[in-house]
Design a protein around this nucleic acid. Structure first.
Length: 282
DNA sequence: CACCATGTTAGGAG
DNA sequence: ACTCCTAACATGGT
């Protein structure tokens, strides 16, 4: 489940696999992946999806850009927006290899096929609209790193830090895992209100976000294929996420898991004290 | 079988 | 009107 580092890894790989190569075939498994706009619903699929993508046959793969968890990919005459949703990833296979399990779409560039594999089908491609493709997103958490005061300004009014960090309109790229890890690095309780943080705490959080993303990007750079937690990936790579009942990797204290909305928030009871946090239900 | 899931958003409640 | 929260989306893993 892709957050900024996983999407960045996908961007780098797609660029390597397809850049300056010719799109020679499109392998359709599930027409539902091409949607009218970036939408997690297969019902938003468009009937013209095949014709749209196949109009790029014979063209060469262009640059792939990323903002937050969103991708923008030019292939000759078309510009695609893409999102990996909850379970999407891109993998490369030789044309002679079998279609990967849960593949939705394959784009063959010369001698290799880039497959969009997505069991849960929230991921999609869409023709880029006329407006700014980054509309609705805050600054990219990696490409436009904020310093403490700027981060504080983006988070004004946030009642609990963890959900606030997930709001893509404030800051684009963090998801449940990396938000939890960044708060742990900064030693901040996930339920703290923005108003309760000192300037030093904002500095620490800004640095922690960068450090967490750098750490994750580094991990993905080292492996050829990204593995998600749901596929048996190692929860050992995280300090608190998914470690409820275990020990904090810094102090050994129990890691707490608190329900928030329909999600889980993880934090260390000792390293991330509530201090003067407003009541938020954590 | 019951419960969990890393993203996003429509719609209802306040 | 605006903000907040939940449920839903589709599917697989534990």
């Amino acid at each position: 489940m892709p957050e900024l580092p996983e999407v960045e890894a996908a961007r780098i790989r797609i660029t390597e696999w397809t850049g300056e190569r010719e799109l020679v075939a499109v392998h359709w498994v599930d027409d539902g992946v091409v949607r009218s706009h970036l939408s997690s619903r297969p019902r938003d699929a468009i009937a013209t999806g095949r014709a749209w993508l196949e109009s790029a046959l014979g063209a060469r793969g262009g640059p792939v850009e990323r903002h937050g968890k969103r991708l923008r990919w030019r292939i000759g005459p078309i510009v695609a927006s893409a999102h990996l949703g909850m379970s999407g990833k891109w993998v490369r296979r030789a044309p002679t290899e079998a279609t990967p399990l849960h593949a939705r779409l394959g784009l063959q560039f010369d001698d290799a096929v880039a497959w969009l594999v997505d069991p849960r089908r929230f991921g999609c491609l869409a023709p880029a609209g006329p407006g700014d493709w980054r509309a609705g997103l805050g600054p990219d958490a990696w490409l436009e790193p904020l310093r403490g005061p700027e981060l504080a300004a983006r988070m004004v009014g946030v009642r609990a830090l963890h959900p606030g960090l997930l709001e893509q309109a404030r800051l684009a790229g963090l998801g449940n895992i990396h938000a939890a890890e960044a708060l742990w690095r900064a030693r901040l309780h996930p339920g703290r209100s923005a108003a309760s943080l000192s300037p030093a705490a904002w500095d620490a959080l800004a640095l922690a976000i960068r450090a967490q993303l750098a750490h994750a990007l580094d991990q993905f750079a080292a492996s050829e294929e990204v593995t998600y937690l749901s596929e048996g990936g190692d929860a050992d790579g995280f300090a608190v996420y998914g470690r409820a009942g275990g020990g904090c990797s810094r102090c050994g204290s129990p890691v707490e898991r608190a329900p928030w909305g329909g999600r889980s928030v993880f934090f260390c009871l000792m390293c991330q004290p509530r201090d003067g946090a407003a009541e938020t239900g954590y």
